[in-house]
Every structure is written in C-alpha cells, then in structure tokens.
C-alpha cells in the first residue's frame, strides 16, 4: 500500500466573487480549498469528512480538475493534472471517474440508461459502437441492475437503482481512481447499505482507489482505510479509520466524533458531547491563524489566532493543531 497513486500538495481552489455591473470585476474570493495536502495509495479508500461548506466536495472536484485550480499540484500516477490542457486532460479522464451525490440530477433525463453507461466507452473510443450496449448490459448486471432495462430512461428507476446506474457509468472506462461525492446521503436508510456494500466489493475486485466524501463519519468509517477530516478548506487531521474515530486528537475531530449519534440508547446516555458554539465562519473571510480557533473548546493563547498550524506527524497520524500533544481527550474520557 506504499505506492501512492495520487499526491496533492498545497492545493488551493478560490472562487472569484464578482461585483455587479455591465462588465463585472473581481471583488473577492471564496477560499473553498486553501492549502491542502493529501495522498491516496493504490487500492486504498480514503474517507474525506467535514461539515457543509468545509470544501470537501470542491476538493473532490479539484482532484479530477473539474474546477479550476488556483494553486498547488495534483499528481496522478506521475502526471501533474494542474499542467494538463484540453485534449490531454480529457484523455486522462478515462482513468479517473466520479460518482455523484444526487442520483436524480446526475443522469441526463433524455438519454437511455444504456447510452448513459456507454458514454465513457464512446468518449474514449474503448469499444466499437456496435458492442457498447452489450458492454453496458454487462456493467448493469455487475451493479445489480436488470440488463433487460438497458433501453429505459432514468426517471423509470428508483433512487437506489439510479445510483447503481451512476456507478456502472463510472466503471465503464475501467478507471483506477473514483471520487465518490456523498454517494449514499440522498438515499433511503435501507438502501444505503446496499450501495456501500457494492462500492466496497467493486473496490476489492478491481483494486480501485476511492476518495469517499461524506458528512456521515459512520459510513466513512465503514468503508475507509484512512480518513481525512476537513475544516474550512484545510485538512485538520488524517489517520487510519480507527485512529480518527476511536482516538481523535484534533479538537475539531473530537467534537465531530462526539456529535455523531450512535444507534444504541445505552451508549448514547453515557456519551459526553462536546457542543461547539456558533457556526462555521464564512470561507469568504476565514479567521486568521488557526481556522478553528473561533470555535475551539481548547483554544489556548495568541498563537492560535495568529499562526496557522501546519499538518504535522503525531503518533503515526497527522494533526494540524499547535497543542495537539497537550489537550488530551476533551470529553474527559480516559484513553482506553
């Protein structure tokens, strides 16, 4: 697992904000991703969690260069995607795909399921035109759909089935790497596990690497080898799933983990929550210093509000907190 497939260094994605008028000028920028480092190994599932507005979806799109990058490099199998242009980039897309959150919005309503799934085959000329529908049917079967429905349209399927169509499409060009952007959060509870299991078995069977984006840490823990936690456009902590979920070190990760309800009333009654005050600051004007210092329950001194902490090694994981060694467990639990 030491072989990195994707390495991200100093990634920034800023969305310009324009003034109103006939010929608008840039007046500011939303710093959706602001200096992010990340590594994904071959065959690894990396969970990317954070709350709404933390930039996790933008990060996922930046990894595939679906949004313009402001700075930094995204090296995929030795090639810096940030430097690719037009046709070179388009060719590269065969090897990296995406699965979207909303199975209703991510399928063109005017195309048949067969045409949707076969589209990557045509875009990269992988299979002769006459054989594409057959290939689409094979993919449908693998993803748990009845191949007889190849001529149907997306609106004739349920949410879970549509997500399977989206997965089949992502698999069609036989990629190495897939960004899964909240692939289960729009689905019914009883369907979520079906899709999670499908994604997991596909990853094993085809040695796929995923970046699995979600706000639900429970689902991320289930599928990920490693987890990265984002806050305001930066990674605050990365580690193995067990390190992050069972023994978080960064105060934000601790608060996040403590806030996630567990379906067990006995455990729930005993748990201590770290209730964060206030809301996430606007990425248009992120706070100075540590981005979390405005809400941090363990905020110490001036250093927190003036100096931005770097992501650094701590007991085998990476944390970006000046005082990660000292703060301990904020819920008052003793480490087990």
């Amino acid at each position: 697992m030491s072989d990195p497939l994707l390495t991200v260094r100093g990634l920034k994605v800023h969305f310009p904000v324009y003034s109103k008028g006939w010929f608008p000028r840039q007046s500011g920028a939303v710093k959706a991703v602001d200096g992010l480092d990340l590594t994904v190994h071959r065959g690894e599932v990396l969970g990317l969690v954070g709350e709404s507005g933390c930039g996790k979806s933008t990060t996922g799109r930046a990894l595939l260069r679906l949004v313009p990058l402001t700075a930094g490099e995204v090296v995929f199998d030795g090639v810096d995607l940030a430097k690719l242009k037009g046709e070179e980039l388009r060719r590269m897309r065969r090897r990296m795909q995406m699965i979207f959150q909303d199975p209703y919005a991510s399928l063109n309503p005017r195309m048949t399921v067969g045409d949707i799934i076969a589209e990557p085959l045509g875009a990269h000329d992988l299979v002769p035109a006459g054989e594409r529908q057959k290939k689409a049917q094979e993919l449908m079967e693998r993803c748990g759909l009845d191949p007889a429905f190849v001529r149907r349209y997306p609106h004739e399927f349920s949410g879970g089935q549509r997500q399977r169509i989206g997965i089949a499409r992502a698999l069609a060009s036989d990629p190495d790497f897939i960004v899964c952007d909240e692939p289960i959060s729009a689905l019914d509870v009883s369907i979520q596990a079906q899709i999670l299991n499908l994604l997991q078995s596909l990853a094993r069977e085809r040695n796929l690497s995923y970046v699995f984006i979600a706000h639900d840490l429970s689902a991320v823990r289930h599928i990920s080898d490693r987890i990265a936690v984002m806050y305001l456009g930066r990674i605050v902590e990365t580690g193995t799933y067990a390190e992050i979920c069972d023994n978080p070190r960064h105060p934000y990760t601790q608060a996040l983990v403590s806030a996630i309800p567990v379906p067990d009333p006995v455990i729930e009654r005993r748990r201590k929550r770290i209730v964060l005050q206030g809301d996430v600051p606007s990425p248009l004007k992120p706070p100075s210093g540590c981005p979390f210092h405005t809400r941090c329950p363990a905020v110490r001194d001036q250093r927190c509000s003036t100096e931005a902490p770097r992501l650094r090694e701590l007991d085998g994981r990476q944390v970006s907190c000046h005082f990660a060694e000292d703060i301990g467990d904020l819920t008052g639990r003793t480490a087990s």
């Binding site: 349920s158 879970g160 089935q161 019914d188 509870v189 009883s190 369907i191 979520q192 596990a193 079906q194 999670l196 299991n197 639900d216 840490l217 429970s218 689902a219 823990r221 289930h222 599928i223 799933y241 979920c245 983990v257 996630i260 567990v262 379906p263 067990d264 455990i267």
Partner: peptide, 23 residues
Amino acid sequence: RGLLASVPRLDSRGELTPVKGSP
C-alpha cells in the same frame, strides 16, 4: 432488525446486511 443491521456505526465496523429491494 434489518434497518439496525444496515446502518453503519461509528463505534464498530461489522458487516452491513442491507434490507433487500426497495420501499
């Protein structure tokens, strides 16, 4: 039972057993 067996939990990583079919 099916619902409880199909929800991933923060405090464990057991196999998920999904409920078959659709609502």
